[in-house]
Design a protein around this nucleic acid. Structure first.
Lengths: 243, 243
DNA sequence: TGCAAAAACTGACGGAGATCAGTGTGGCGA
DNA sequence: TCGCCACACTGATCTCCGTCAGTTTTTGCA
């Protein structure tokens, strides 16, 4: 049963029990598999007629550019996450989407999405719920940018990723593989790359985490949680409201 | 026809033409009118069994508190806006909601919301679309916190409010009434109240805007737009995707 | 109408983080 | 296997904004 293996089904399955029918509908959504190379944007701000995608493997970032040349990464998507759902609903993309690594994603045409909502309302509710959870993460990110200092921000970010990756089996209690450069971290955390480097060194010297060679390793998980004021409440809500 | 007068109908009506049936359903959603005094929270992080509300008059803010005592306001709601929709979908509130002024709001029980989705799918789509638009505003706020300096942030904020208030007839080209204290502005913009005061003075001395006695008045709208790098694209999307 | 309390406002000072201007290093395409 | 380019890393300096410690003005209410 490959649907059970897909990170998307795995994520939803952690919150709702899916029937065999629902699993097979999920499977069907995965039929238009496509790959994209790292660095070349999948979609641009202002573009219309966007498709949505479900990410099967690899990492992606969503960002906005300012006219002064700086950019702000809004969030990263990891396997099992939806891509560009808001752009579909608004008919126009309000941000850019760039694969950070080589990725595999399943295109989900609007029509299929609507039909899924119709045919299996429970799956529709699950998708809506997953979207709300993603929005809660954006809100938490916003709070961090507004009211946490650089160290707390970094600590919080690494912990959030850990929680998200665990859900799809891509992280252990010890750590995880992370393909993000310090430039990407800087654009996500609202810092300069120089300062990201210093903060990472600090956390390492404090014996909390190391981030080296694309590998995040927790040295003192609880210490990091305390530093970041990390509370998983915004991540582990109950499952979707079922029709 | 009072439904046409309601800010919510007015907002949706700016993007979709509503049938008489739809207007009357909208009217029905407004039946459980309640008032709340300023300062006493309507809902708290972690609370379950939340109701959603449609704001009829007054201003509200949604915020999160950190354990270090600081707070970050995620967004303000003005008449016509939905309140606590995400909290309903997640079953648990992920933020606090506080009326900034005395407000009137219509409680929308989950059941009614679901029935509306069923009976008038076009209205359901409109609500979903409005929610996506709100999320786009949160994203733009996040970008500002990450990559704009204090002046740009303030300018952008005042302009966004102007655009939103115009839509429900609460602002003119010249300005609008704004009940927000400098402390509230500070918590929204990720600044200290002291610095908010300085920035406001600067903008006034630059001849761009004044914010005095609860009144925002534009002196040089285009200059402010240029300073803020303000692009309304994220606010004026096409109307909802209709079933 | 009078006085607390909240909000607006100000100057002096300090610090977190940006910017500048580099050096080191590992991966990969020619 | 050489050289290039992206990325990691570092010290020195500057600046935006926070904090502190007030004063003044406005508001609400007794």
């Amino acid at each position: 049963m490959t649907a059970l293996q897909s990170p998307f089904a795995r994520k939803l399955g952690a919150f709702v029990t899916l029937s065999t029918l629902e699993l097979s509908v999920l499977e069907r959504l995965h039929s238009r598999r496509r790959t994209f190379v790292a660095g070349r944007d999948i979609s641009h701000e202002g573009q219309t007629d966007q498709a949505a995608y479900i990410l099967a493997s690899g990492w992606v970032c969503s960002y906005k550019l300012l006219t002064n040349g700086s950019r702000q990464i809004v969030d990263f998507q990891i396997p099992g996450d939806f891509l560009g759902l808001r752009s579909v609903l608004l008919r126009t993309a309000d941000h850019n989407i760039e694969p950070v690594t080589l990725i595999e994603a399943s295109e989900v045409p609007v029509k299929d999405l609507m039909e899924t909502f119709d045919a299996t309302p429970r799956l529709g509710a699950a998708v809506l719920w997953a979207a709300s959870r993603d929005e809660a993460m954006v809100v938490e990110h916003l709070v961090g940018l507004g009211r946490r200092d650089a160290r707390e921000r970094m600590a919080h970010f690494l912990l959030e990723l850990s929680a998200r990756l665990k859900l799809v089996g891509l992280a252990t209690a010890d750590g995880y593989a992370c393909p993000l450069s310090q430039y990407l971290l800087a654009d996500a955390l609202g810092l300069s790359a120089v300062h990201v480097n210093r903060v990472l060194r600090e956390l390492r010297e404090m014996g909390l985490v190391t981030f080296q060679n694309g590998q995040v390793t927790f040295q003192d998980f609880d210490g990091l949680v305390a530093l970041a004021d990390f509370d998983t409440a915004y991540l582990d809500h109950e499952g979707p409201l079922m029709p």
